[in-house]
Design a binder for these strands. Structure first.
Lengths: 152, 152
DNA sequence: CTCGACTAAGTCGCGCACAACTTAATCGAG
DNA sequence: CTCGATTAAGTTGTGCGCGACTTAGTCGAG
């Protein structure tokens, strides 16, 4: 009976609760859900918010570089950017020096949104409720995991 | 210049690389991507695989309980289960004692798939490349994070 | 210069994920 | 017993996320 309670997860267990992958999947959706009401206020979805984070750091980014930063395909980004453009937050224009490439730039409204977005990471950090050490450890492990799983 | 390299992330930074939420989002998608070729062999998507994990543990589960285990809405599960049924892996039948509830059961093919799925967690665990301690820490932190973010 | 390889962005189809809603069954206060 | 509230499952609409493919522009060997 003690075997059920305290046995460490067997290698290759098919039990849902043993699996890191599920903890990851559940946590990711839970965090996104937590963002939703805050981002609704800004008229953004979570992936749109990530794109805006990149543009607030550095304006005039190509779709390719956005994909590199966010690890997203152009087939995901193109429609998303179209929606951001329709909402008046970004403009897209072909690069003069390479007509294949498209530069995504903030509009005035897109740049202005930054101020209103400042409260978001604080609110989320607060909701996450991890100590700075836990936060750092989590980030370190998740990056290592991403690295390992992507290479391999 | 040392400030750029070694400054700890400011509270409420809008920098993408500082954010735990992005590390989580990226890791989750990277892990799912790693599963994809393995699950293609079994004719499953990743969320379908999670449903099968639950059913392999305990057969005849209601949609409600599946939702509880996986933290998914019926609006996500209903079409997913329909596809699993179309692929011959599960059956759905109304409960006699409560006609609102639907019991999801494995077909023979669904039960048989379990054997072929045994290799999957091992392969993924291997690809993740974390030590048992790192794996345990990651799970612990992700569950804590999910808990905090869900309650709050 | 030319033409085939490569690259950037975008389209299309499918399967989630979830909010808002609908339908049907059950429950429980009066 | 009855009827309003609750609950389970499903439907609809929107936005990802990605594989497979298309279109258009660039590059480089010959």
């Amino acid at each position: 009976m003690a075997a059920t309670a305290n046995t460490p997860p067997a290698q290759g267990s098919l039990q849902l609760r043993d699996q890191l992958c599920f903890a990851l999947y559940a946590a990711s959706r839970a965090v996104t859900a937590r963002y939703r009401p805050l981002l609704d206020e800004l008229g953004l979805t979570y992936p749109q918010y990530l794109v805006m984070l990149v543009l607030w750091e550095r304006d005039a980014v190509s779709v390719r570089d956005l994909g590199g930063a966010l690890q997203l395909e152009s087939s995901t980004l193109s429609p998303l950017l179209k929606r951001l453009e329709a909402n008046g937050l970004v403009r897209r224009e072909r690069r003069a020096d390479d007509e294949r490439s498209v530069a995504v730039r903030l509009t005035e409204a897109g740049a202005d949104l930054r101020e209103r977005a400042r409260a978001v990471p604080l609110a989320i950090g607060d909701a996450m409720g991890l100590t700075p050490e836990q936060d750092a450890t989590a980030k370190r492990l998740l990056r290592l995991l991403t690295e390992n799983v992507t290479r391999g």
